[in-house]
Simulated scan of single mutants.
Amino acid sequence: MYVIGLTGGIAAGKSTVTKRLGELGAVTIDADQLAREAVAPGSPGLAAIRSRFGEGVIGPDGALDRPALGAIVFADESARLDLNGITHPAVIALFQERLRAAEAADPSAIVVYDIPLLAETGGRRGGTFEFVIVVEAPEEQRIRRLVELRGMDRSEAERRIASQSGDAERRALADVVIDSGGSLEHTLEQIDAAWEVVRRRAAAKHGGEAPDAPTPTSGPPAP
């Protein structure tokens, strides 16, 4: 198995990169999806969040009210750290489960973990990731994506971006940086080039030659 960490700031274009790598043959794991599982109704994670942040972050259906919680943690550093202390251990455990399943299905699998907060949560995770891809786009473009595509007001978008690590911190982790600020075609070209590097490294690890890559289908960009 060969494990890649894929990271980037909010609205940098990670979804586009993850989708393409999946088309090219990678097994993809989404940290945001694992985070949702970690705080699903009835989970210990949700109970801990209720205890720390109160009933105001629980919706009428008993599920986590993410906008309400987000408004708290993105405005209060101590609250954000408390939330991370609840969710990160649960997410790591779920990630390890997914890795074991991927390896059991295919010992030579290339696994891509889309993890937005890699720089904020320990860099390369103690050697878990053998290769790191960083996705970035100009800050103003990311703000525009958040406003136009996700319905945030500008001040909230700026606050979300400011709460995360900066480009320089993420680049310090990178084996490859993909700039998603241009056209979709240019972004896909960079992804495909990165995939060829990854395939060669994964093949070398397993003592063989990289197989021919499948021809992916293209889709619309995602923020």
Results as ranks from 00 to 15, higher is better:
V3N: 04
I4Q: 01
G5K: 00
T7V: 04
G8W: 12
G9S: 14
A11K: 07
A11V: 06
A12G: 11
T16Q: 05
V17K: 09
V17C: 09
R20V: 05
L21P: 00
E23G: 06
L24T: 01
L24D: 03
L24Q: 02
L24R: 05
V27R: 15
A31Y: 01
D32S: 05
Q33L: 12
R36L: 02
E37G: 09
V39I: 13
P41D: 07
P41H: 10
G42E: 07
S43H: 02
A48V: 00
R50Y: 08
S51Y: 02
G56D: 12
G59P: 09
D61W: 13
L64G: 00
P67Q: 11
L69T: 06
G70Y: 01
G70F: 03
A75W: 03
D76L: 06
S78I: 06
S78F: 02
A79H: 06
A79K: 09
A79S: 12
R80W: 08
L81K: 13
L83Y: 04
I86K: 01
I86D: 00
I86Q: 04
H88V: 10
H88C: 00
A90R: 14
A90K: 06
A93H: 02
L94C: 10
L94K: 15
L94F: 03
L94E: 07
F95D: 02
E97S: 05
E97Q: 13
L99T: 08
A102F: 11
A102W: 14
E103H: 10
A104E: 15
A104W: 12
A104G: 11
D106F: 00
S108D: 15
S108V: 02
S108G: 05
I110E: 07
I110M: 13
I110V: 15
V112H: 04
V112M: 09
Y113F: 14
P116Y: 07
L118I: 05
E120L: 05
T121V: 10
G123N: 02
R124C: 03
R124L: 00
G127Y: 07
F129M: 02
F129R: 06
F129G: 03
E130A: 13
F131E: 06
F131K: 02
V132H: 03
P138I: 08
E139A: 14
R144V: 03
L146N: 05
V147N: 08
S155Q: 15
E158Y: 10
R160L: 12
I161R: 07
S163N: 12
S163D: 09
S165P: 02
G166Y: 10
A168G: 08
R170L: 14
R171Q: 14
R171E: 15
L173F: 06
L173H: 04
V176D: 03
V176A: 11
V177K: 10
V177H: 11
G182H: 09
G182S: 09
H186L: 10
T187Y: 09
L188R: 12
L188G: 03
Q190Y: 09
Q190T: 10
A194C: 07
V197Y: 01
V198N: 03
R200P: 00
R200I: 13
H206E: 14
G208K: 13
E209A: 15
P211R: 08
D212E: 15
P214D: 02
P214F: 04
T215N: 03
T217K: 10
T217E: 11
S218L: 11
G219H: 13
P221F: 07
P221W: 09
A222Q: 14
A222R: 14
P223H: 08
